[in-house]
Design a protein around this nucleic acid. Sequence first.
DNA 1: CCCATCTACTAAATCGTGTTAGTGGCGCTG
DNA 2: CAGCGCCACTAACACGATTTAGTAGATGGG
Lengths: 307, 307
Amino acid sequence: MAGTRRTTMSDVARASGVSRATVSFVLNGTANQTISEATRDRVRLAVAELGYVPHSIARALREGASRIVVLQVGGLPRGHALESFIDGLDEELAAAGHGLLVSYGDRSLESTGTLLEAVSPRAVIDLPALYSRPDRDVADGGWIDGLAAHAMTQVSFLRSRGHLAVAVAEPNRPDPVVALLAGHVRAAARELGMPRPRSVRVGETDTTARRLRAVTQDHRITAVAALTDDLAIAILAAMTDLGLTAPKDLAVIGFDDTRHGALWRPALTTVHIDARAFGRRAARNTLGLPADDTQPTPARVIQRASA
Amino acid sequence: MAGTRRTTMSDVARASGVSRATVSFVLNGTANQTISEATRDRVRLAVAELGYVPHSIARALREGASRIVVLQVGGLPRGHALESFIDGLDEELAAAGHGLLVSYGDRSLESTGTLLEAVSPRAVIDLPALYSRPDRDVADGGWIDGLAAHAMTQVSFLRSRGHLAVAVAEPNRPDPVVALLAGHVRAAARELGMPRPRSVRVGETDTTARRLRAVTQDHRITAVAALTDDLAIAILAAMTDLGLTAPKDLAVIGFDDTRHGALWRPALTTVHIDARAFGRRAARNTLGLPADDTQPTPARVIQRASA
DNA sequence: CCCATCTACTAAATCGTGTTAGTGGCGCTG
DNA sequence: CAGCGCCACTAACACGATTTAGTAGATGGG
């Protein structure tokens, strides 16, 4: 059992009485090569009988890259949208014979580099980098460009419910991605003629409560727009500790429709994003395939109890 | 820029005036090869100057496997423990020059197989398979074997708080892993002389509430042990809808110390597991390295408000 | 009848590394 | 001084696929 050699292209060639080159041509449907239908059948039969599977490493060595795409997530907020984005990416890549490898590289640059070197992926989608560069292309399927619209959906919902001034809940640690998201929320507020939203930085529960109280000294502020559902939940928890209830004392809206939001009491109102479609588009973009015609459905508000 | 060829071993050999083989011997410290120190230095200098990096694909082709380990997670409950397990695995593998690739393959078997084939990993750690086989080895660093003890920690905490009969919260969909976990909880209860715990299957919030009410008809039941924190939170949500409060009407304990548990009101009491240490041990096991002497710290209860 | 074109293939180079077998030179020993 | 062992290397094959260049034979046009 230990000595069973893997079946290679040479085996197939020998079994079907042709050369290795011919086998390759048949299997890859190489253009500008004429192979008779009879020969094609012989080759395909041999492949089936021997159970031949191409050795991807040999192929990668020859082609210069493996049929794998790496998605670098880094410290991006995890959640529903990211998972859906990954699902969409994976689906479309699989359809094109590629695999997806996700790297949550909080790790040092060196080890991530080693990993990338080891896989030699056909392409790398570096989401944090895409977020921070202003001159990004559409490698992410337009997701990030859509963020401005998503933020507008969130803020204009609050506006339509009669809130004239809002605060924005953001994570404690500084991060370019966070800054970008918060910037979109502020821009949306400005566009709607609302005062510049003050920010509530979310950390430990007690300090969060303190900060929340400080911000709500301004009695014009009647709602909080959170950059993620997790942040929204932290705000709701702080409110409970302060004896406030949503939406009566303060309305709260999240972003990204996570499982936990629906379970919270009061259930969290949030923004749902069709990230799967963005993932599919990102896949087609990175592989250089023609764009699909399916449009991502626009972001929509899931209205529950908290706002 | 496009035409820059990568620097190969031949380049290094030429630059240092030796053969490719010698370069390989020097870089890999091959045994039974005598190379003079002077030559070693010349080679190392050339490597540094040319910025040579070995081509992992070529190496993988030659060696038969890449320096990558794949962790298959499948449908396992995500959470804090899994993340820590992954972190520990990653640390230790990186220290040994290997990379970790995580596959959440809910996907069809075929595409996962293709991905594995494409990477040709040195080893595959298939957690769901490990969970379900009774004759598993210690490829997971003893994590799963520890689960019985973990369940005992959870149940005996409830017992020590005066709860004489408990229910167990488990997910709706049937799954061998779930069955295993639930079995441990039941075994722990039996060992403590408690009646066999009835199960509450957690689905949509309203049906969960209905099932919870049905189970708590039995007034001896005063606590719920949940297989994961997420399930515990779902129970707490259902309790809110039923007008019950924890821990007065029913105590709830989770498993795995997720972020959300601490935020919930009442804050969730849960079991914390040192999964990172299990990850490190798993890494050493799969690579065939001698076992480390660090023992995982035993599971402990994080007592908050809910139990 | 000759040349060109097309069909249906094949031989061999190539990707970059690891490793086995071998080789000249040198010192030492009997 | 033959013979042996040791040192410090090198030549060449192997891994398994892709792709370029080329070649017999059939067909067709003038």
